[in-house]
Amino acid sequence: MSAIGELRRLKTTTRKKDNRAAFFFLLPWFAGLIVITAGPVAASFVLGFTDYNLIQPPEFSGLENFQRMISDERLHQALAVTFKYVFISVPLQLVAALGLAMLLDRGLRGLAFYRSAFYLPSLLGSSVAIAVLWRQIFGADGLVNQALSLVGIDGRSWISDPSTALSTLIVLNVWTFGAPMVIFLAGLRQIPAMYYEAASVDGAGRWTQFRKITVPLLSPIIFFNLVLQIIHAFQSFTQAFVVSGGTGGPSDSTLFYTLYLYQRGFHNFDMGYASALAWLLLIIIAGFTAINFWAAKRWVFYDD
């Protein structure tokens, strides 16, 4: 019994040492979670109920910041612009990504090169350099107008026109289809070829195979990309900031929600109101995500 007791004691001691070692290895991650993520999130929640100008100490104001949102016309404009951007650019981006993934899935020569080339815009699309380049391309003397002049069409400054400024940013977001395309391509590779062979024997055409085989079996991947890209689109900031010079112009036509939040917090020094706006954005994104998960029960197909 004493030998067994000693063995148990050694096991307990060894387990405690392993736990301490694991804790010390995880300590930097916990510190980052608290200092960089959890701390600022909790602080923004508290500041959302205060009047805080970044200089003087915050003063508790209750629900005043949230009540101001009801009559804030620029906030309503920012919501309208952001919703339009999300509802147009995300579906177009996913369609482009799926179309190119199906094209690459046919086994083209140099597939690795094309996959890398098409993925590159996803890495660069949200950068300041690409936003500056985009502003030059769609400017009055940009590449688009130069191409139109070759066929006798007079161009305009697409960035400076309120009716087309947002469209240029939508095109930029669609252009960054690389990440969902790679995910779609991986999903297409998992669909057994025997399904298409059986459908061909039964006389099903390509469109029928796409609707009856590809879309149902790829629906979990479509759902994943849809949720991910909607969240990403709601958080878009750099493109609108650089293209509009930080104003959201012309005439607030590119005033993204995140850009308006930035203006309130760091231009107007109204950090309390900006914190409340940040939590409203969190609620909006969470709401759309919940709706997607609820609707997924009706169109997403799983093998089990």
Results as ranks from 00 to 15, higher is better:
Phe87Pro: 08
Ser116Leu: 06
Ile130Met: 12
Gly125Arg: 03
Ser122Pro: 11
Ile130Gly: 01
Leu100Asp: 10
Leu148Ala: 02
Ala80Glu: 13
Leu104Gln: 04
Ser126Thr: 14
Arg115Cys: 14
Val95His: 07
Arg109Val: 04
Ser127Val: 11
Thr82Lys: 07
Ile88Met: 08
Val132Gly: 11
His76Cys: 06
Phe138Cys: 10
Phe113Met: 02
Ser167Arg: 05
Tyr85Glu: 09
Gly110His: 12
Ala97Ile: 02
Ile153Thr: 03
Ile137His: 00
Trp134Val: 03
Ala147Arg: 01
Tyr119Lys: 10
Thr164Met: 04
Ala140Tyr: 11
Trp158Glu: 05
Phe118Met: 07
Val151Leu: 02
Leu124Trp: 15
Ala129Cys: 06
Ala101Glu: 00
Ala78Phe: 06
Asp141Tyr: 13
Ile88Asp: 01
Ala80Gly: 13
Gly152Trp: 02
Ser167Gly: 08
Ser160Glu: 07
Ala131Met: 10
Gly107Phe: 06
Ile88Cys: 09
Arg109Leu: 12
Pro91Ala: 01
Ile153Glu: 05
Ala129Met: 10
Ala112His: 13
Ala129Trp: 07
Ser160Trp: 01
Leu75Glu: 14
Ala117Gln: 10
Ala78Met: 03
Leu94Glu: 05
Arg109Lys: 11
Pro121Cys: 10
Ala97Asp: 03
Ala117His: 13
Ile137Glu: 11
Tyr119Cys: 04
Ser160Leu: 10
Asp154His: 10
Asp105Met: 00
Ser116Asn: 12
His76Asn: 09
Ala131Cys: 02
Val132Phe: 15
Leu111Cys: 03
Ile137Trp: 00
Ala129Val: 15
Pro162Met: 06
Leu79Phe: 15
Thr168Met: 08
Val81Gln: 09
Val132Ser: 14
Arg106Pro: 00
Arg115Gly: 14
Ile130Ala: 06
Leu120Gln: 06
Gly139Gln: 08
Val151Arg: 02
Thr164Tyr: 01
Ala96Leu: 15
Val81Arg: 10
Ile88Leu: 11
Ile130Val: 13
Pro121His: 10
Arg106His: 02
Thr164Leu: 04
Arg135Ile: 02
Leu98Gly: 01
His76Ala: 12
Gln93Asn: 13
Phe138Arg: 08
Ala97Thr: 05
Leu166Gly: 06
Arg115Gln: 15
Ala131Asn: 01
Leu111Val: 14
Leu123Glu: 06
Leu124Ile: 15
Val132Lys: 14
Leu169Asn: 07
Tyr119Thr: 12
Asp105Thr: 00
Tyr114Cys: 02
Gln77Val: 15
